[in-house]
Design a protein around this nucleic acid. Structure first.
Lengths: 232, 232
DNA sequence: GAGTGGTCTAGACCACCGG
DNA sequence: CGGTGGTCTAGACCACTCG
């Protein structure tokens, strides 16, 4: 593994272990401790900072943040759905719909796909403790992600894409908005008395910059959480 | 200004101007174009990547993303409130409450402040086109942010902190959840027929790692949007 | 003035990609 | 194989902080 990543993990462990409290050792001291150059140390510290563990201040040092609450410590930016999928927390997935379709004008406008693109369209219901709380509506470009099956959709599509197809994901753009619940939401989710859903729009790009997935994650409002850490 | 930042802005302009489409020039070519080292070029490209403009692929090059929608292109991570404040878009701010208070057990638990901390407590209503759509509930540590007044709160508290007090902000942790509207929400916001609010919890730290602000931004659901770009 | 983090240079080796 | 981006080194100068 990379040196800077190993150092990052080591520093993170020491911080969580309260070995480093107020201040980290200076970058120069750390170069001696780990036997690497300052650049490598700085990359490790950058990772810590983007995780919200530390903040650097010119002329003073690298400060360890107080009150590192657990939820935030876990990761930089995740929706409830992603946390659940990552931790595999008693999550039940039902594939409600699976098939091919062609992007029409409206979907093209919403997703950014070119009209006429052949898509694999999937609807999946995520349940937690027998409550259906998230509806994932996926659109994958068939040409870019071939071989998708209902069986794959029941497991992890991303494992399939990355492990089986050996395709690497570039970046994902998200937007979060609140929408009135639709017929579809009432049909697939246990909405209780809610009439709104939290919709996370996901636009996912391959490493060569091509949009290959557009997904709506539709959450029941009470089971939604999204966390983030922003650096100045 | 920094070299890497200037190069970042230049490259961004060229991308938006369609001078670079599929691929950027290679990093080695860019070093010659700008007369800097590869490290500096790479820092500029890193910024472009975290803005969601490009994705790098080993052995191939730096790809420009297709479908760069406007909202995303503006910035990495912003809530509606922040966009409005940044653009100054016909935003009216009313200070509904202003005063000192002491953190009790419950607030301490929620915010992370030590119980007994003296706080400046502010409630502000943000209106757009005569609709009251956001309620900001602020708690600032009085000792760290002294001299706050109602007049400051009517303008920009952050301008005051950064310009007048010359204090630098470190990082901010946010979480977004949906809550039932409270009496307070109905009192201060034009809720129409909504009974839920989007609550953005903000924990803001100084550069020395000390928590100095806890704020709830309570949004009417239909006027909330949050965007983000995540790199793999 | 000594120590800190922020920027930048010049150069090296590597893994990956394509012809 | 040559070209690409990813990592890392060794060293320099700067702005900032604090005694």
């Amino acid at each position: 593994m990379n040196k800077y990543y190993e150092i990052y993990e080591d520093l993170k462990a020491k911080i969580l272990n309260n070995e480093y409290r107020e201040l980290l050792p200076s970058e120069n001291q750390l170069t001696e401790i780990y036997g690497v150059t300052r650049n490598t140390i700085r990359r490790a510290i950058d990772l810590l900072a983007s995780d919200g563990f530390v903040v650097s201040k010119k002329g003073k040092g690298v400060f360890v943040l107080e009150n590192r609450s657990v939820e935030f410590a876990i990761s930089g930016l995740e929706s409830f759905r992603e946390v659940m999928i990552r931790t595999g927390e008693k999550f039940k997935t039902d594939v409600a719909e699976f098939g091919a379709m062609i992007a029409d004008e409206q979907l093209a406008k919403q997703s950014g796909f070119t009209p006429g693109t052949v898509l694999t369209h999937i609807k999946r219901v995520r349940s937690l403790q027998n409550e259906r709380i998230i509806l994932d509506v996926n659109y994958f470009v068939e040409q870019l992600i071939p071989g998708l099956t209902k069986e794959v959709a029941e497991q992890s599509i991303y494992t399939f894409i990355e492990q089986e197809l050996n395709i690497e994901i570039g970046i994902a753009k998200k937007s979060i908005v609140i929408e009135r619940a639709t017929e579809m939401d009432y049909q697939y989710l246990d909405m209780l008395d809610f009439d709104l859903v939290v919709v996370v729009h996901n636009f996912v790009y391959l490493q060569d910059g091509v949009l290959f997935e557009y997904t709506q994650s539709r959450h029941r409002p009470d089971r939604f959480i999204f966390t983030d850490i922003a650096r100045r």
